[in-house]
Amino acid sequence: MFEAAKPLLKQLLTCIAAIVAAHALAFFLMRALPSAATVALGLQSTNVEVVAAFESSAPVRSYRQTVVDFAHLQLGRTLDGTSVSSELLAALKLSLPVLALSMLLALLTAAIFALSPRARAVVPSMQFFVFLPPFLFAFLAGSSQLFGNVIAPIWLTIAASAALACCLFAVQAHAAMAQELALPHAEVMRMFCATERDLRLKLLPGVLVKLAPSLETGVSLTLASLLFAEPILGQAGIGTLAARAVRRSDVDLLLGAVLLFATCIAIARLVGWGLRRHYRLPT
């Protein structure tokens, strides 16, 4: 049983190592930024006593202390005095459905592009959208707010976050379906008078499975898009939270956000790996 679980354990260890590395890297990157006291107090930070009073109310933990506290599941407090865990949970409650809906949308788009022969005409457009910078979708979504809230901001956030992942999955699904249709078993099915529609439907699960390696990419693209979309659209969530943490040099909050991002990506990676393993694709 241990032998069977060994690959999974190996993957888990890799994920944990990556999460720890991301946490450490974020901690040390924050050292390069202006201190929280400088950002919060502005010119008042020239006053040593004022800075001391600020830092006594919001002490900066060493990296070792951060890791020790994390081992006790204590993520610290934000500069506002709220618990980091509660802020992350609140942000996650808002962003997780966006993330899930975005991935769902991406899979649906992939399915549509795999099933529809006419999608071939639209594939170049999808390739063009992938070519565009990720923040453009957030810009366009945000610009629509200038003309009134015709579309609720939350849908704009979902659209802006999902756009890139949808385009990528669409292009890959189309290419994967084209490959599948050229294989001998598709030829055999045609010989058995399968219609184009039936053929594509039967091949769809295989095509979607081939997207498994892209699952992690899709999730990280969506998270990256959230980091632009939520602040631009003024929506609360993990993107806005992370942006706020960075700009205010709120170390504890940012480390919590990085842990959250790393965990989401690790989960996506594990799911992708599991799917590849299950369907005996190369891992």
Binding site: V39, L43, R247
Partner: peptide, 11 residues
């Protein structure tokens, strides 16, 4: 420059 960085550089 980001405002925090600006103030930091000024100080």
């Amino acid at each position: 420059l980001d405002k925090g960085q600006l103030v930091g550089n000024l100080i």
